[in-house]
């Protein structure tokens, strides 16, 4: 087994453009993007769930791609553009996706919601009218322990102006 270095690694400066705003941040190589975004930049919308790539709560967009902030080193993001859930609303006005999530009851505890919204944002950017199957596939990496997913699928259908919304029975 290989012993990890005992001495402290050197800090380095990286530049992240987060929601359009440039940040210069000093970090060590072991800093995870999720911790930098939440603790150093102060945007706590992005959630940290499993820390192992399995839940999707930490999903944000890196150069437009939905990625896991818990499994990405911040130093690897030097010079990249990051978009978090805080960027979706325009001031007090929610984005159509966020409105649809509220309308359809797709938010319960809310812990999965930021990650869900970012995955859906990426999906719609490349596929404005996703089928039920495509929605499921795009969200397979976002776990929700509350809604049972159907309300979330309904919200995506509503946000993309499609039929097929199924009533949810409680």
């Amino acid at each position: 087994m290989i012993e990890a270095v005992k001495s402290r690694s050197r800090k380095r400066l990286i530049t992240l453009t987060v929601n359009g705003e440039e940040h210069e941040i000093a970090i060590r190589p072991n800093a995870m993007l999720v911790d930098v975004v939440r603790d150093q930049i102060g945007l706590t919308g992005t959630k940290s769930g499993c820390s192992s790539g399995s839940c999707g709560a930490c999903t944000l967009l890196i150069d437009g791609r939905p990625m896991l902030a818990c499994s990405t080193l911040a130093v690897e993001c030097d010079g990249k553009a990051i978009r978090t859930v805080e960027d979706l609303a325009d001031g007090e006005r929610l984005s159509p996706i966020q409105e649809a999530f509220l309308d359809q009851g797709a938010v319960q505890c809310g812990f999965c919601t930021p990650g869900m919204l970012m995955s859906v944002t990426a999906l719609i950017a490349s596929n404005p009218k996703p089928s039920h199957q495509e929605i499921k596939k795009a969200l397979e990496g976002n776990l929700c322990r509350c809604t049972g997913y159907n309300a979330i699928f309904n919200a995506v259908l509503q946000a993309t102006g499609q039929d097929g919304i199924k009533p949810i029975m409680f």
Partner: peptide
Amino acid sequence: GGTDLLPNMRLKIRTPATL
């Protein structure tokens, strides 16, 4: 991509001194 290596480093399955 780090999707395998970083979780394994968290669990100390792999402990490289330099990436």
